[in-house]
Amino acid sequence: MIRELTPELAHIAKTELNEDPKQTPEDVQHLKDWIAKQTHLKARTDDQWLVAMLRGCKFSLERVKAKLDLYYTLRTTSPEVTLRLKPTQSTFINFLKLGTCIILPKATSGLHPRVILIRAGRYDPEKNSVADIMCILYYMVQILVMEDDSASVIGTKIVVDYEGTTLNHLVQANVTLLRKIVAVSQDSLPLRLKGSHHLNVPSGIETIFKLVSAFISEKAKQRLKIHKSTDELFEHIPKDVMPPEYGGTGATVAQNIEYWIAKMKEYKSWMEVEEKLGTDESRRLGALPSDETSDKGSFRQLNID
């Protein structure tokens, strides 16, 4: 069932995303019919999931089909990013407890992009990889767009805190892995990225920024902000969203972690299905959706709204 938007969200969805609530059910059914005809594709057909995909592509059916195909193709061809930690296993929850990636609650007033907080130096690089952070985010985003229409309509912002990051963390971010992480996070997920904000940036990170800049659009580059303090951050992020550990007035990091652990347990049956989805490339009738998954292939410029 497709949820009805609030008048304010509906206005934004119409003017910015071309969403027509009278047409949306027909678009969703069209996608279900299309998925059923793809012999290689094992994909979700939940209404809200498909609506989130439509919003992420501004209701262009052809773009949605390409995104859906890419999303599940990457599940199969890049498991080192999408299935490195399986959401139904204890290793996933144990890594989630470190607080390397949490999606923060909505702002208490007004409509704002949801904030994804990445704490890049909070894991042991001898035990885990930067790809594990992407894997955690990959599954949390599914829950986010299923439950929060404002996230799929208004979009998201990413805040990356590099406190605790060492050279051992940085060397994990090789060009091949970065390409795949960017493809998964920005080219296949149903998200409108409204900006990325970076705190406690260490020396040496410039090399990674240069590598990533080769894969993203000019708009994304312009929206990449490096802040010297949280005061600068609060010019872009509501203070009531950020945890008190960052000078905000929102829930603590520990409270946010507990919330998402509970959510993952609540969505256990969803995740059990999720682990079985993907593509069977031996049954694909046409070419791959793009060559993003190839180490030698070139990446499309990513769409950042």
Results as ranks from 00 to 15, higher is better:
Asp161Pro: 12
Ile216Met: 01
Gln222Leu: 10
Thr207Gln: 09
Thr230Phe: 12
Val171Met: 03
Thr230Ser: 06
Gly164Gln: 09
Ser213Gly: 14
Arg192Phe: 03
Leu193Val: 14
Lys180Tyr: 01
Asp231Ser: 15
Gly195Cys: 08
Phe215His: 03
Arg179Gly: 07
Gly204Cys: 05
Leu178Arg: 05
Ala151Cys: 08
Thr166Pro: 04
Tyr162Cys: 14
Lys194Tyr: 05
His227Met: 10
Val153Glu: 03
Met146Ala: 13
Tyr162Trp: 13
Thr166Trp: 04
Ser152Gly: 03
Ser196Gly: 06
Leu144Ala: 09
Thr207Arg: 13
Ile154Asn: 04
His169Ile: 07
Ala220Val: 03
Val171Gln: 11
Leu178Thr: 07
Lys228Tyr: 10
Ile158Lys: 01
Thr165Cys: 10
Val145Gly: 02
Ser229Gln: 12
Val184Leu: 01
Ile226Ala: 02
Met146His: 14
Pro202Ala: 01
Lys225Gly: 00
Ile226Val: 15
Asp187His: 12
Gln172Glu: 09
Lys225Leu: 09
Ile226Phe: 07
Ser213Thr: 09
Phe215Asn: 03
Lys180Trp: 02
Gly195Ala: 06
Lys194Glu: 13
Arg223Asp: 04
His227Asp: 06
Leu191Gly: 00
Gly204Thr: 12
Thr176Asp: 07
Lys228Ile: 01
Ser152Thr: 15
Val145Arg: 01
Ser196Asp: 07
Leu193Pro: 00
His169Ala: 04
Thr230Trp: 07
Leu170Trp: 03
Pro190Gln: 01
Asp187Ile: 06
Glu147Leu: 04
Thr176Ile: 14
Pro202Val: 09
Asp148Trp: 08
Ala173Pro: 00
Asp187Asn: 13
Lys221Ala: 04
Val159Arg: 01
Arg223Cys: 05
Pro190Asn: 01
Lys157Val: 15
Leu199Val: 14
Ser203His: 14
Lys194Ser: 09
Asp149Gly: 02
Ser188Asn: 05
Thr176Trp: 02
Glu147Gly: 09
Thr230Asn: 10
Asp187Ser: 12
Leu144Thr: 12
Asp187Leu: 07
Ser213Cys: 12
Ala173Trp: 06
Asp231Gln: 15
Pro202Thr: 11
Lys180Glu: 01
Gly155Ala: 06
His198Leu: 14
Lys221Gly: 04
Asn200Cys: 09
Gly164Ala: 06
Ser150Ala: 15
Lys225Gln: 13
Ile205Thr: 15
Arg179Pro: 00
Leu191Tyr: 05
Ser217Pro: 05
Val171Arg: 13
Asn174Ser: 06
Val182Gly: 00
His197Met: 08
Ser203Trp: 15
Ser185Ile: 05
Arg179Gln: 12
Thr166Asp: 02
Val212Met: 10
Pro190Ile: 02
Thr230Val: 15
Arg223Lys: 13
Gly155Val: 12
Ile205Tyr: 15
Leu167Pro: 00
Ser152Trp: 04
Gln222Asp: 11
Ser213Trp: 11
Leu144Gly: 08
Lys225Thr: 11
